[in-house]
Amino acid sequence: MADLTTSIGALGLRNPVMTASGTFGYGIEYQDFIRLEDLGGIIVKGTTLRPREGNDYPRMAETPSGMLNCVGLQNKGVDYFCSEIYPKIRDIGTHMIVNVSGSSPEDYAECAARIDALERIPAIELNISCPNVRDGGMAFGVTCEGAASVVRAVRKAYRKTLIVKLSPNVTDIVAIARAVEDEGADAVSLINTLMGTAIDIERRCRKLSIGTGGLSGPCVKPVALRMVWQVAHAVGIPVVGLGGISSATDAIEFLMAGASAVEIGTANFLDPAVSVKVVRGIDAWLDAHGCASVRDIIGVAE
């Protein structure tokens, strides 16, 4: 049994495996399949200041080794989260991290401030990279100034660990990562989904209700891994890696690329127990290779 503990800034994790926002509900949806406390953390569904109905159906299209979604941040708003959901998840025995999204820096900051008051939420993941809403999300994440403006506002309102989730739909993700680091982000997570589309050739129209969606699944892994490697070698803050991870081998690749922790997303849909299998698989690999700690392999790939 190797030492699996790692950290994202001041936040210590039992192990480097977390579940990605939008793929794991509030954790409760998966507790028939796994012991949630076996995870390093759970990043819950994107939360906004006000309730959002999300986009119309259809919101999903299967693609080769992946899927597109255009859910569009459907959620009942931060007040509902604080009063109705938080009491149900506060005693889950792992880090419950809230993904926060918004339409303006002020929205983000207000939402973050409400969550700052919740004792058992040790961190937020700031979503400046949702490709599926017009009035925000990715709009901030695709320019250095946009990203910086959100992080600047949130940093003033939020004292705990602040992770900023980056969009891959940019020319230079390293520049964005540096911009949010400069504004006081404690960590970055990457990548959010890649913008794409799919066409129904019989009906001769695009399959998703808003035309485009975010691509996820094993098909995005090489892109994600390349971006994690680039960012990890350019910033001083920890990097959380995600994008197509569905096995321990995938996770170890991200750790070796420089990620201090990883998130598992779409793979949860295929195997609701995959996250804990990845934890066990990392442990077994470390034992088999004589590594005493998972920290020994973080960033070793040159």
């Binding site: 793929t23 949806e29 159906y57 919101r59 999903m60 459907q74 949860n268």
Partner: peptide, 27 residues
């Protein structure tokens, strides 16, 4: 039988409009 991904109420892809707003068909 809306198209769905997770089947568990996590991905919010299979929503149907109801008098309570969008809800997951799977859950």
């Amino acid at each position: 039988e809306n198209m769905m991904a997770c089947g568990l109420g996590a991905c919010l892809c299979c929503v149907e409009k109801t008098v309570r707003g969008n809800v997951c068909v799977c859950k």
